[in-house]
Simulated assay, not measured.
Amino acid sequence: MRTGSEPATARSPLRMRFWLSLWGLLWAAFGMTVFALVGRPGWAVACGVLFVVAAVDLTMVLRHLRQGPHWQPGRDIPPYEPDHGGTGRGRTRHGHPRRG
Rank of each mutant, 00 (worst) to 15 (best):
M1E: 14
M1I: 04
T3N: 10
T3H: 10
G4F: 05
P7M: 03
T9F: 08
T9G: 06
T9H: 09
R11L: 11
S12D: 10
S12L: 15
S12V: 10
S12T: 10
S12E: 09
P13T: 06
P13K: 01
P13Y: 06
L14Q: 04
L14K: 08
R15S: 07
F18D: 04
L20W: 05
S21G: 14
L22Y: 08
G24K: 01
L25P: 02
W27K: 04
F30E: 07
M32C: 12
V34W: 12
V34L: 13
F35Q: 15
A36I: 13
L37N: 10
L37Y: 11
G39N: 09
R40W: 15
P41Y: 02
P41R: 01
W43A: 15
W43G: 08
A44Y: 01
A44C: 03
V45R: 13
A46H: 03
A46C: 05
L50S: 14
F51E: 03
F51S: 05
F51R: 01
V53Q: 10
A55C: 08
A55K: 03
V56R: 11
V56M: 13
D57Q: 15
D57T: 13
L58T: 01
L58K: 02
V61A: 07
H64P: 00
L65K: 12
R66P: 02
Q67K: 15
G68L: 04
P69K: 00
W71Y: 14
W71S: 08
P73M: 01
P73Y: 02
G74Q: 06
D76N: 12
I77P: 00
P78H: 03
E81P: 03
P82R: 02
P82T: 00
D83G: 01
H84S: 07
H84Y: 10
G85L: 06
G86K: 02
G88T: 03
G88P: 02
R89E: 09
R89D: 06
T92I: 00
T92D: 12
H94T: 08
G95T: 01
G95P: 04
H96M: 08
R98P: 01
R98V: 05
G100A: 07
